[in-house]
């Protein structure tokens, strides 16, 4: 058997994809997705940059000390982390019981509720914040932590309900019944069978909620600025008032928690847990 026929057979057994074309596609995708991040990232260590050179004129860590020494920026980092953690916690308390109910109970209005949650997504975010802002004026919630927190939690409700609901629904009832048969109480069954099995889905929801809160800029800016600044809202002012390199350093700092979470939850997110949550059942 010569190599040529062997290869011909291999390609006959598979469907044909043009090799050079798919190679080009891959390279373009890498440039498209990673290019901007790399181009910005390099700037955090760059002295100055002359067009059209493909590299900076020199390297420096100066910009890092500028950012790390800046108190307002430091406070923004603290605010963001605390707010994101608080958002996940509050959102979980509100949404997880509902997620379980959607997965396991049939009740009046269940479908309407599910679609209602989705309507939250359909209303444009900026428009929503504008309308919320006019309400918050009346309720004296503008520029308060509670106001910003409400906006952040609103942005996580869909993740925190749908994804865990799909995860709960995926736990086979027979496993729960087996545990009950063995003599476990209902609550016990939930905490020793249902919850651990649904945990990957809940974790993905928590990660997505954390990111959503950490990423939230428009609402925080409209409701919280200038009294309560988070990292993303700080970014708005930063890119306009500071040299490019400072924004680059700040971007890297802002991306660290996200990337850490990416590495932690990557398997579950790519594994379809996220996608599963977006189909109304």
């Amino acid at each position: 058997m010569t190599m040529i026929t062997k290869r011909a057979r291999k390609s006959a057994a598979r469907l044909n994809f043009s090799r050079p074309l798919s190679g080009l596609f891959c390279v373009l995708m890498v440039v498209f997705i990673l290019g901007p991040l790399a181009w910005l990232g390099i700037r955090a260590f760059a002295e100055s940059w002359t067009f059209p050179n493909l590299g900076p004129d020199g390297w420096t860590l100066r910009w890092w000390s500028v950012v790390l020494g800046d108190e307002t920026l430091g406070r923004a980092v603290q605010n963001s982390l605390a707010l994101a953690a608080l958002t996940v916690l509050v959102s979980a308390c509100i949404c997880l019981p509902a997620a379980y109910a959607f997965a396991r109970y049939e009740f009046w209005g269940r479908r309407t509720f599910l679609i209602g949650l989705f309507a939250l997504n359909a209303f444009p975010k900026m428009g929503l914040y504008v309308t919320i802002a006019s309400l918050f004026y009346a309720l004296n919630l503008m520029s308060t932590v509670l106001g910003v927190l409400i906006v952040h939690v609103l942005g996580t409700v869909v993740f925190m309900t749908w994804i865990p609901a799909a995860a709960f629904a995926a736990v086979p009832r027979s496993l729960e019944e087996a545990a009950r048969d063995a003599g476990a109480s209902k609550l016990r069954v939930f905490f020793s069978v249902t919850f651990p099995l649904a945990l990957p889905g809940i974790l993905v929801a928590a990660v997505m909620s954390f990111l959503a809160s950490f990423d939230e800029a428009q609402g925080s800016y409209l409701i919280g600025a200038p009294d309560i600044m988070t990292m993303p809202t700080q970014m708005y002012t930063l890119v306009l008032n500071y040299p490019n390199q400072v924004a680059a350093v700040f971007s890297i700092l802002l991306a660290i928690p996200s990337v850490a979470l990416l590495l932690a939850a990557h398997k579950h997110i790519v594994g379809g847990t996220l996608a599963e949550g977006f189909q109304i059942k």
Binding site: L34, L37, N244, A255
Partner: peptide
């Protein structure tokens, strides 16, 4: 896997990175 990365990059950063990438310099 590559196509998932933007999910983890705050939109503010992404926007700024894209502006820098496609800007005059």
């Amino acid at each position: 896997g590559l196509a998932i990365i933007p999910l983890f990059i705050p939109v503010v950063i992404a926007s700024w990175a894209i502006v820098t990438f496609y800007s005059g310099d």
